[in-house]
Every structure is written in C-alpha cells, then in structure tokens.
C-alpha cells in the first residue's frame, strides 16, 4: 500500500512537471478532407498548419487593428469618399484584371469597399487619433517646428540666396535660381528628421524662433549649407501638420499600435501564433510587458553601485 501510494504520488508529480506545455490551439475539424489526389489527402488541418506557419503574424495583426479601428474610428462621409476614390482609381488603372481578382476572392467591388478599403482607412486613422490624444507629450519629445529649409552644396550659392531672402525674395524662386533642389516651402521638422543634417536639425529645434529670420547653418561636415527660417515653434498653431508628421514617425507608429493593443488587452493563446508575432513584432506582444520596463531593469542592473 505504501509502495502504491509512493508510485502514485511520483506519477502525479511527474505529470504535473511534464504535462504542462505551451498552449497550442487546434482546429476541431482539422481532419476534414478538402481534396484527395490518388492516395494523397489534403485536410483542413494541412491548410491550417501551412497558413499558420506562413501568415499567422500578419493575419493576426491586420485583423486586430481592424477590429480596434472599427470600435474607435467612426465611418464618416470623408472616409467613404476617400475609399470610393481609391476604388475608382483601381478600377480605372487595372480594369478587368482587378475585377477578375475580386471574383477569385469571391468579392464584389462593394464588398471590397466595405471590407477592405474602408477598414484600411480606419486603421490609418488610429495613429492619428493616438497622436491627437497624446499631442502634448509627443510634441515635447519630438519638438516639431514649422520651417523653411533650403540646402545648398556651394557656399557662394548659399550666400547669394541668403541676401535675396533677407530682401524678401520668394524662397521657392531663390532655391531654384541658386541650384538648390529644395522646394522652398514650409514643412514640419522633428528630432527624427533624418534627411536634415544633425547640426542643422539640432540648431533648428533648440532655441531658434521666428524672430531669428533667415539664418545660414553649415552642415556638421561642412559639405553643405542650409538656410533656415523658423515659421512657428508652437505645435498647437500648426496642429494638423504636426499630427500628419508625427504619425509617420516609426517610434510613434509603434507606440500607437502598442497603445491600442494595451487598451484592448490584446492577448495570444497559441504558441505558433505567439512565436510568429515574437519573431516579427515582439513589441506588440503586450502580454510580455513593456519593452521600456525590460530596458529599465537591464539599465538598473548595470548601474547598481559597486561597493
């Protein structure tokens, strides 16, 4: 009896130890035969496994964002108009091959409009909504300014242009007259404006104001010369342009997606899907905690004072 109890207890402990593994979701009808060629059978499970291996991450992330967008973004007349214009453009540009493509998917143009184009626009507007809801903190982080920036490779061109600009000449005309490829129009620049030389960018975003007028700033390596005029430093005064620029920043886009995933408690319960997302977008597995928290912990470990 004692021996039996000991064996039973050991068996239970062994089961507890080894029986728990990462969850793997199964199709209840995976053995349903889709077709058979000779003796080779293809089941629903075969198709499911192949699609899970190839498309799980993208399918989940696309679907999740559409579901969130459907709850957060109202379908306005503007959205419908934009979607219809895109559809009309596809039909005109691709003609019969587009409609054939839809037929293969079992869709009409109306289905495509409502199930693909409109949801895509709603998803795009999620990042815009995120930026609007967090505008103050994002503006503080990325320091957007509205400015005209004209680049020159030759100092002589830059000097001549500067004089003309100070005399009130049109920036676009000055740019083209003096061999610059810049448009001469006002744009929004941020700390992430990588097309701008680092010294020029730092100077523009830290302390320059509209009162400085036209200013020449050489590039950090001296290979080019930028003439800059700050139009506006208060992001609220060019709010829409600032939002348009901020939402395109990679870090903001990621932060936006995480924000919505956290708000809607996105969670994955299948190990294949989990690993697929971890491989491509680990930052979106909010169930694993914040990447900042992990970095902070690592930093804390390295900065612990030595005794």
């Amino acid at each position: 009896m004692k021996k039996t109890n000991a064996i039973m207890t050991s068996a239970v402990l062994l089961c507890l130890l080894t029986g728990c593994k990462d969850a793997s979701a199964d199709l209840n009808d995976k053995d349903t035969v889709l077709f058979k060629v000779g003796e080779t059978t293809v089941t629903k499970g075969t198709v499911y496994d192949m699609l899970m291996n190839s498309a799980a991450s993208d399918t989940i992330m696309n679907s999740v964002q559409k579901k969130i967008a459907a709850k957060e973004i109202e379908i306005t007349d503007d959205i419908k108009k934009d979607a219809q214009e895109t559809l009309d453009m596809y039909v005109e540009y691709y003609g019969d091959s587009f409609t054939s493509y839809l037929e293969q998917l079992g869709m009409t143009t109306e289905d495509y409009l409502n199930e693909s184009l409109i949801p895509s626009i709603q998803v795009e507007q999620l990042s815009e909504k995120y930026v609007n809801e967090n505008f103050a903190s994002l503006a503080e982080t990325y320091k957007p300014v509205k400015a005209i920036l004209i680049d020159f490779t030759e100092q002589a061109d830059a000097d001549a242009a500067l004089e003309e600009l100070k005399n009130g000449s049109d920036p676009a005309d000055v740019a083209s007259t003096h061999n610059s490829s810049s448009s001469g129009t006002a744009m929004v620049y941020t700390t992430e404006s990588s097309s701008v030389d680092s010294l020029v960018r730092t100077t523009m975003l830290n302390g320059m104001t509209a009162d400085d007028g036209w200013t020449m700033i050489p590039a950090s390596d001296g290979s080019s010369f930028s003439i800059v005029k700050i139009e506006e430093t208060d992001p609220e005064k060019f709010h829409d342009d600032a939002v348009s620029t901020l939402r395109t920043l990679a870090d903001v886009s990621t932060a936006s997606t995480r924000y919505w995933l956290e708000k809607y408690s996105f969670h994955v319960y299948d190990i294949t899907a989990y690993n697929a997302i971890k491989n491509e977008h680990p930052e979106y597995l909010i169930q694993d905690g914040s990447p900042e928290t992990e970095e902070t912990e690592e930093t804390a470990e390295t900065t612990e004072p030595t005794e």
Binding site: A23, V268, Y269
Partner: peptide, 17 residues
C-alpha cells in the same frame, strides 16, 4: 509557459477587447 484558453469547446487563438 503560454497559457491556453477555450470558448464554446474551441481553442482560442487570440483575444482583443
């Protein structure tokens, strides 16, 4: 270990909201 979930007798892949 990744924990699983079921609903209506079926395994759940993911949840949102």
């Amino acid at each position: 270990k990744l924990k699983g979930k079921t609903e209506g007798g079926e395994d759940v892949i993911y949840s949102v909201g």
